[in-house]
Design a protein around this nucleic acid. Structure first.
Lengths: 165, 165
DNA sequence: GCAAAACCCACGAAATCCCATTAAATCCCT
DNA sequence: AGGGATTTAATGGGATTTCGTGGGTTTTGC
């Protein structure tokens, strides 16, 4: 069965495991790559997930949404007299820790050291669709701290990989 | 990993550490240089960040925005009957302390004494994307007074550098 | 004429590109 | 629906380019 191509607007549904090699390279799985609006070069956004120890990956659409959302929250905070330093720091999380990277011809990206550390990524990267974005987990971490569904996804791949070796 | 070129309009996303040498020279990291509208010579704007002890760096686009913003605030203040002297001094900070500098062939700039002092820059410069501009921090200062995200960025580089030496 | 700034070159390290090979999913024909 | 043929995807490794940095040389301004 062929997965419908996400020309609609960058919706990420599915899951995949990919290897991280010695150069910190990892393939962006097809279910993500095909969902991105076609462009050359193929730009992909990476960020840190605020609430869970994992990374986020998305395209132009969600990136624009995040920028708008950030601005909305800032203005709301301004009205409430919230601490501006908090928003400064959130901004640094979005723009300072995140990156826009390009896939190479083989559909791979290189994971920077900071992101790799923040996402606790070792030699495997588990991609999990979340709708407008997707998550990248260390499958071992996902099994340890994930909820029921995430555990199932992660342990499936870990078992499969164990069986192969 | 190649960062997508920001032909769109000078958006700065990412982070990098660069060394300040004995001549007060420092490399402008690729994620900033590539985001600038291509021009010869490669002009870069430097300023002091009003709220945090760091510098700002940006290109033509944000510079033009600042000019418009300055005018907007002045008119708004005029309506409210605010003290015009306040704006006078803010202006001097923006236009008097800031500089437009050129990158040399190697992509480096020279940091003037006043800016270096205001930004508390010693022998390392941490670049942090902020969207329409980027910040330049002394990583040690960033670790000390930064919020959670900024601390993570700064401490990552300090650790990495410590490990290498 | 001197100090400081700008320019130029050069080297090492790291990021990027490119090709090859394997594995897996899809297609197509019977 | 089965099963081989074809395409797409995933990954490994080497070649190439860019980036970051040090140091020397020329120009500029006082």
């Amino acid at each position: 069965m062929e997965r419908t191509e996400g020309v609609e607007s960058e919706i990420f549904q599915g899951n995949a495991l990919s290897a991280v090699d010695g150069k910190s390279r990892l393939s962006i799985p097809a279910f993500i790559r095909n969902a991105l609006i076609p462009a050359e070069p193929r730009g992909i956004y990476l960020g840190v997930h605020g609430r869970s120890p994992c990374l986020t990956v998305y395209g132009e659409t969600y990136s624009a949404f995040l920028v708008a959302e950030q601005e909305r929250l800032r203005l709301k905070g301004e009205d409430n007299g919230a601490d501006p330093d908090l928003f400064e720091d959130l901004d640094r999380g979005l723009w300072g820790m995140g990156e826009k990277v390009n896939c190479d011809a083989g559909g791979r990206i290189v994971l920077g050291g900071l992101l790799r550390e923040e996402g606790r990524i070792e030699d495997m990267a588990l991609f999990v669709g979340r709708g407008r974005y997707a998550e990248i987990w260390n499958p071992k971490v996902a099994v340890e701290i994930g909820g029921e569904r995430l555990q199932k996804i992660a342990s499936f791949y870990l078992r499969q990989k164990g069986a192969k070796a």
